[in-house]
């Protein structure tokens, strides 16, 4: 077990380093330098050549590429992600302020996705081929196919125009408070429904695999009731691979948050990233993308570790 943990941990380091490097190279090797994106060529008069040079120097773009890369790496290790061009404030501070909000929203979305998706998938698998199965799987495909920004807009209109039970948009503090939770519910439902569709489909196929196993047939043939076979023998084993999917799902919750936070005006890291894109503020884009990617890699690490614990058959070699 320890060897597995150590190996899995060591595998994360090159992935994170690769992600950091990819973001850096993407931004610095793309045609046009980040400052020329920030101040377009047709910008009004006040963008003098000196001002542009001053900006370049401020973010270190006047130095050779390898020097910029090394200082960027050194900065990342110390969680110093540079300064926003637009607000002149440290990116890492802004991210630290917004990250908990996105994590809260992501966890709430994940909870909704699991609460909806897993039972639907299990029921579908048990009643395979029935009307219930067909309807449930069609609905799951609806969830996978609906653009989350449209679903968000529809839900906003629902509570804003017809059924005022929740605030249509905004932010009310931590979701641990009642007011905060009220604001978080709509965006979380929006993100959760897309995730639930995928989870339901995956749960169903995982459950079907297990139901075909010999030990399930054995359990049936020794006369155990359907209930015991399904819940004690099949479901427990079917849920194991689903745990791995949770790490991946958390990633899709994070990337869903980028768009859905924009729809609902939720002041998280996704909204921060989108504002950074709109302002062409490259340190903000760079920092926000990095934090989301690293968060996702760590979430996957966590699920793999949990997976190793709950399924002793899994060992990395």
């Amino acid at each position: 077990m320890t060897a597995y943990l150590v190996k899995r941990l060591l595998m994360v380091v090159p992935t994170v380093w690769g992600a950091v490097t990819l973001v850096f190279l993407a931004i610095h090797l793309a045609p046009g330098d980040p400052i020329s994106l920030y101040i377009p060529a047709d910008f009004p008069v006040n963008a003098s050549e000196e001002r542009i040079q001053e900006l370049r120097a401020r973010v270190g773009l006047d130095r050779p590429l390898y020097e910029q890369y090394l200082s960027f790496l050194a900065g990342v290790v110390q969680f110093d992600l540079g300064t926003s061009l637009q607000h002149r404030t440290p990116v890492s501070e802004a991210i630290l302020e917004r990250l908990p909000r996105t994590l809260e929203l992501g966890l709430l979305s994940l909870a909704i996705a699991v609460a909806l998706g897993v039972p639907i998938g299990v029921l579908s698998a048990i009643r395979r081929g029935s009307l219930l199965d067909n309807v449930a799987m069609s609905v799951a495909l609806f969830g996978v196919s609906i653009p989350n920004f449209w679903l968000g807009i529809l839900l906003m209109q629902l509570v804003g125009l017809y059924w005022p039970i929740l605030p249509p948009s905004g932010f009310g503090g931590s979701i641990l408070t009642l007011d905060g939770l009220r604001f978080a519910l709509l965006p979380a439902i929006t993100i959760g429904i897309s995730g639930a569709g995928g989870l339901a489909r995956y749960t169903r196929s995982s459950m079907l695999d297990v139901l075909n196993e010999d030990y399930v047939r054995t359990a049936r043939s020794k006369g155990l009731s359907d209930r015991v076979v399904v819940y004690k023998h099949a479901m427990r084993n079917a849920l194991i691979p689903i745990v791995t999917l949770l790490g991946l799902s958390f990633g899709s919750m994070l990337s869903g948050a980028v768009i859905v936070e924009t729809v609902f005006g939720w002041p998280g890291i996704g909204r921060y990233l989108v504002t950074g894109i709109q302002n062409r503020d490259f340190p903000v884009v760079q920092g926000a993308v990095l934090v989301i990617a690293v968060g996702f890699v760590l979430a996957n690490l966590l699920t793999d570790v949990v997976y190793g614990f709950i399924d002793p058959r899994i060992r990395y070699d």
Binding site: A19, L254, G256, V289, I292
Partner: peptide, 12 residues
């Protein structure tokens, strides 16, 4: 490494 950018993030 490309998989480290979940969902739409890489495209963004």
């Amino acid at each position: 490494v490309m998989y480290a950018f979940p969902g739409i993030l890489l495209a963004i």
